[in-house]
Write a protein that binds this DNA or RNA. Structure first.
Lengths: 152, 152
DNA sequence: GCTAATTTTGTAGCGATTACAAAACAGTTA
DNA sequence: TAACTGTTTTGTAATCGCTACAAAATTAGC
């Protein structure tokens, strides 16, 4: 694991407060589930994980919370796989993402240097996503035949 | 434009043949629409563009053709925006993609050097996607206020 | 031209997401 | 405490991209 994260509920509430997000138990839980843990969860995964804690939880609340946290700059959407969006804490330091095609796990990686330098002149960079797909160490041994040439 | 593409129907048919894709008028049209033009089109856009030429064209045929061309290694999926998949000709040389958040246009860019080097040891790289979002030269003047700090 | 295999087409269905309105809740003031 | 106001949550219905599937059309080999 490239980086571990652990935020107390107080820290999360403080972050929400300074970003102008009003507090509610559901919102804190959603934010906590994204911020802690290294799962880069989808809305459905968040809903499934939190339903036992909030038996009345609605999917719409999860979506509402995620949209609000995103608009206020606390979390970031990862459009890694079409079909659904994954969410990640928006950190200060840049990082890229490795997606294991064997087990589906997403791992933070250091961001390669010099990406913005490769952008053509007169283009204004807003955000950079680097998605690397392949096999994680666990899956590499099991599925060596799946490895072909690198595709860009 | 980083690179222009222009393939004759004969060239496209030849490429399909050498990759083991049987020919049909619809398939050639789909492949041509992806290979020529710099649109990085979605399935729906391809369907809309080709419908006048093949009045009986079915969405399913577009999806079938795209899946086949992808499986045979002729085209590549770009999972840039969640909700739908865009398609791109699979070129020999690596390139990255710039997505203008103003006009939606997607532009090929050179691939920054040294990406694979940043991957942690013991991870096997299969593919690399670099998606840079921001404003293209046309949109930059119009919407300078939209530019915030770069988000990774 | 006949037969078998492939391709195309149309319909029905699925999963993630959004729209929307009603219900529940929280904070403020009287 | 009660009433008022704005916010949040909830549940239902609808949308959109895509997939499953079977029937119809087309193609290829004989």
């Amino acid at each position: 694991m490239y980086k571990d994260r652990a935020f107390t509920e107080n820290q999360l509430a403080e972050m929400m407060h300074t970003h102008g997000v009003r507090l509610s138990a559901q919102r804190i839980a959603v934010f906590s589930y994204v911020a802690n843990g290294k799962l880069h969860p989808s809305a459905e995964e968040i809903f499934t994980a939190l339903s036992p804690i909030f038996p009345s939880l609605s999917r719409t609340t999860v979506y509402n919370s995620l949209h609000l946290l995103k608009d206020k700059g606390l979390i970031r959407e990862l459009e890694i796989q079409s079909g659904f969006i994954r969410y990640d804490l928006r950190l200060q330091e840049a990082h890229s993402h490795f997606i294991c095609t064997g087990c589906g796990r997403i791992t933070d990686m250091p961001m390669p240097a010099g990406i913005a330098d490769a952008v053509l002149p007169d283009y204004a960079v807003g955000s950079v996503d680097v998605f690397i797909k392949g096999l994680c160490p666990d899956c590499k041994g099991r599925r060596k035949k799946d490895l072909k040439q690198i595709i860009y």
